[in-house]
């Protein structure tokens, strides 16, 4: 998938990924790779500034966590505002994809 195309939706993809539970930056990258089956061809470092942007917007919170045996990691969690934003974005996306689908998938009927 085109990286530019994905960039506009990266924030939503990250929010949805963190809906499953808290995770550190690299775990988010891995989860996106796993769930998309590698179809998102985006430089992996792009995820970190997106996490930072979502944190500054109050949609994510982060904490340093040190596992018993391991390195200190910054772990991100969806905030209540983030959960609300994800719900709204999901509804917006469903409506948008339905509308565009009418044009790109001509056999699909309009479902208002």
């Amino acid at each position: 998938m085109n990286a530019e195309m994905l960039k506009g939706h990266l924030d939503n993809v990250i929010l949805a990924t963190l809906e499953q539970g808290s995770a550190h930056g690299y775990a988010v990258i891995e989860e996106i790779r796993r769930r998309s089956r590698g179809s998102f061809n985006l430089p992996e470092g792009t995820v970190y500034p997106a996490l930072h942007r979502l944190e500054l917007a109050g949609l994510l919170a982060s904490d340093w966590v040190t596992p018993d045996a391991g390195r200190r990691k910054r772990v991100y969690t969806l905030t209540p505002t983030g959960k609300k934003a994800l719900k709204e974005r999901r509804e917006g996306w469903a409506e948008f994809s339905r509308a565009v689908g009418v044009f790109l998938e001509p056999d699909k009927p309009w479902a208002a």
């Binding site: 430089p43 470092g45 792009t46 930072h52």
Partner: peptide, 20 residues
């Protein structure tokens, strides 16, 4: 290389922090 182009990544950080 997989992390991404330095300037692109720096640009993304700057864009992320600009609104705040």
């Amino acid at each position: 290389r997989r992390f991404g182009d330095v300037q692109d990544i720096a640009r993304s950080y700057a864009s992320a922090a600009l609104p705040k």
